[in-house]
Write a protein that binds this DNA or RNA. Structure first.
Lengths: 213, 213
DNA sequence: CGAATACTTGATCCGCATCAAGTGCCGTGG
DNA sequence: CCACGGCACTTGATGCGGATCAAGTATTCG
């Protein structure tokens, strides 16, 4: 949910309270699975991931929030406990708006629910698409999909192999091997930890059709 | 989204038009991926699955709708094309409300967006939980989870091994083998095509902790 | 009763996880 | 400015879970 640039939610900015600003380090947790939501969060700068950890310790990266986006809204409006944890993927600065104030403001601006519904409907579509890709595609396809998605939506972040693995629901060594393959095919170029996309259309082809050979 | 029993959406029932009732056979498609939504659907009786088919022909069962529920709402309110197809899992009778009428009625009952948002938020949570389970758990756990979910929410439907496989993102022979294991452990009982849950708490334990031995 | 659909089984194979032992890279503090 | 510790990355060997395939058996429905 974008706050800046979106008239529908501008009323929320009147709730910003200088005292409710907080800075977080990389890897720091903002909230944890099973807690009850007490606030809505607005990301002033940085990058936040919604993650869920399995018993075997693997982190699954479900959703990613960038600058100027709101998060923590799903559980808040569902009236449920958090189903996953929010964790900083970069140093981040964020504002929190207490639950009661959010609810009051939405009650005074009921047309905002329409925007919220639209936004949640899009997120649901994205979640189900990712779920489908993860369960039906081979790893090359998933990695190609992730590279394209990351380049398009979060181009400024330096994605680690670990993070890519978490998003693709696979493991670091596998991502590294696949990146090696993609580099041999001249579709990407790795120097240092940076990954540069060279042939976007071929990557799209791999991501969508699963056709490599 | 439930229509009966939910005051928030009762206004929609005034839009029901006897001429817009339609009966579908099992396996019949209601709408297909990539089409533009032109209506909201209300399921009078039967069972409908939201499915997505992979290139290799595997059907992934993303969401399931039962009697008295609305569907087709996600794409309609997201303003997107369908990201998956709706298909009858049983003979079904449904009503369609044309898009324009839905939008008009929601405009006249703006408080309904609040209910819609809450409902979508819950669906998003469920979708991400399923996605996590599919990507991080072994098949026994997924099947146990599916059996419990089906028993709780759709107890009257006779779930085929194929449908269970589609929901668990696996294949029929694998489901059959797992069901055999669960039966040997006296957690379920299969006669004919019927599956009866004998030890619910043990199944929950398997589904949640992945601990079998 | 016959046809279609659902189920079952075992043999084989392969993709990817897992593990372990490294090598680089980078920021921090001395 | 360099040394050092920690994190990120890399590589290859091995194993296993579950896919795949195919042939056959039930079951249900028209």
């Amino acid at each position: 949910m974008r706050l800046n640039k979106v008239n529908e939610l501008e009323f929320l900015s009147t709730l910003f309270d200088q005292e409710k600003i907080k800075d977080y380090d990389r890897w720091e947790l903002i909230y944890s699975e099973n807690e009850s939501p007490e606030a809505l969060y607005y990301l002033e700068s940085g990058l936040v991931g919604l993650v869920k950890v399995s018993k075997s310790g693997n982190e699954n990266l479900l959703r990613i929030f960038k600058q100027d986006e709101l998060f923590g809204h799903r559980s808040l409006f569902a009236g449920e406990a958090y189903h996953a944890s929010a964790k900083c993927l970069e140093k981040s600065r964020l504002r929190m708006i207490p639950k009661e104030e959010v609810m009051k403001a939405f009650a005074e601006n009921p047309e905002a629910y329409q925007y919220l519904a639209k936004y949640l409907a899009k997120e649901l579509g994205r979640a189900e698409n990712r779920s489908f890709i993860v369960s039906e595609s081979h790893i090359v396809e998933r990695v190609a999909y992730a590279l394209l998605y990351f380049k398009k939506v979060f181009p400024e972040h330096m994605w680690t192999r670990q993070e890519i693995a978490n998003y693709c629901a696979t493991r670091t060594p596998t991502v590294i091997k696949v990146l090696g393959d993609l580099e041999k095919m001249n579709l990407i170029c790795q120097n240092r930890r940076q990954i540069e996309v060279l042939d976007e259309s071929k990557l799209i082809q791999i991501a969508e059709e699963g056709a490599i050979f």
